[in-house]
């Protein structure tokens, strides 16, 4: 066990835990944002630099501070380590710089992006970024590439987190896409217009933190906050079969894997479940998904909540204590249900 102190909060964690995971064990505000690290993917992380933290004390044995900010997702804790995240103004400034770099060439086409509302870059920019850009040059644009019938690639939005490459490496046999070219013009692509066809390839959509890889069957169908997430499962011989169905009215607009509070999938799902099973009758419904009340997806369900709150303030205070997760899409609180 190693004792680590992050922003003044001390916790004992098993040896070999990364600073980021130690912070996640503590939870709350002090968890550094991560755009490329993915706990379910080996060797992920280290690229985006948003999770940087300041190590003010290396360890009990060697108390020297680390000279540079370190990527918390790839740095393991030492016994007695002291880390500053949100308590260091310098570090927050440095992180704002990283966010600025990530947004530098991002097209900011959120109004027409299917990822809007569940985009990690939006959240990151909102929480850590600055309101205006200082970049006065044309943003870079990539040639459009078709990578198959299921997945839509928008390279302009990509932040090169390498998650989709690692999914292809670790979940499928024979990766056909990867990063080609170098530096500013590096891009995710298949080699010579190949098509991604593997049965597990749809997971690249779930791991993509931005709108670079989106579901072709859901394209332009709806804003995510107008859809209602419901957990469901079916017997699948290829994957766990545990999914999240996104309803608009009676219709299932898309199927995704279930995601945890850090936006990471709980278990991978196959393409059959994701793209081919879009009838309610094909699924066993478990109930509404839990969505964080901070999420814009839950915002739409709150419209009715706000009016209700005025009417029955006490009742709601009991039902929804501050900070607890809201069961979105439930009963009378859901606008879709009200319409019916």
């Amino acid at each position: 066990m190693a004792k680590v102190t992050i922003d003044g909060i001390t916790i004992d964690v098993p040896d070999g835990t990364t600073i980021l995971n130690a912070a996640r064990m503590i939870g709350g505000e002090i968890v550094p944002p991560a755009m490329c690290y993915y706990s379910k993917l080996k060797t992920s992380g280290g690229y985006c630099r948003t999770c940087i933290v300041k190590v003010t004390k290396g360890s009990e044995k060697d108390p020297r501070p680390m000279p540079k900010p370190v990527a918390s997702c790839r740095t393991t804790v030492m016994d007695g380590m002291e880390v500053q995240n949100i308590t260091s103004p310098d570090l927050l400034e440095a992180r704002a710089g990283v966010v600025e770099f990530l947004l530098l060439n991002h097209p900011l086409d959120c109004p027409v992006c299917d990822q809007a509302g569940e985009c990690h870059l939006q959240d990151l920019a909102y929480n850590n970024g600055k309101a205006e850009t200082r970049y006065a040059f044309p943003r870079r644009e990539f040639e459009r590439r078709d990578i198959g019938n299921n997945v839509q690639l928008h390279m302009n939005r990509c932040i090169l987190c390498y998650r989709c490459v690692k999914v292809a490496d670790q979940l499928t046999d024979g990766r056909v896409h990867g990063v080609i070219n170098r530096g500013e013009v590096a891009e995710i692509s298949t080699y010579i217009d190949n098509v991604i066809e593997n049965e597990m390839s749809g997971n690249v959509i779930d791991v993509c933190p931005v709108g670079a890889l989106t579901d072709k069957t859901f394209r332009f169908k709806s804003r995510v906050w107008y859809t209602k997430p419901v957990d469901a499962h079916r017997d699948c011989d290829k994957c766990c079969g545990k999914v999240r169905l996104w309803y608009k009215g009676e219709e299932v607009l898309r199927v995704t894997a279930r995601k945890d509070q850090y936006g990471e999938v709980e278990d991978w799902i196959c393409n059959t479940c994701r793209f081919d099973k879009k009838e309610t009758s094909q699924w066993t419904i478990e109930g509404p998904s839990k969505i964080s009340r901070d999420s814009v997806i839950s915002a739409n369900h709150y419209e009715s909540l706000q009016s209700l709150r005025k009417a029955t303030k006490e009742q709601l205070a009991n039902a929804l204590p501050h900070g607890e997760k809201v069961q979105a899409g439930q009963g009378a609180l859901n606008p879709n249900n009200q319409k019916q």
């Binding site: 630099r49 770099f101 530096g183």
Partner: peptide, 18 residues
């Protein structure tokens, strides 16, 4: 340096070009 950045991590990929 802009030409030679490998493009792996964001500060160098975007910053050198800027």
């Amino acid at each position: 340096y802009h030409h030679e950045s490998c493009g792996q991590c964001s500060p160098c990929r975007e910053g050198t070009g800027w």
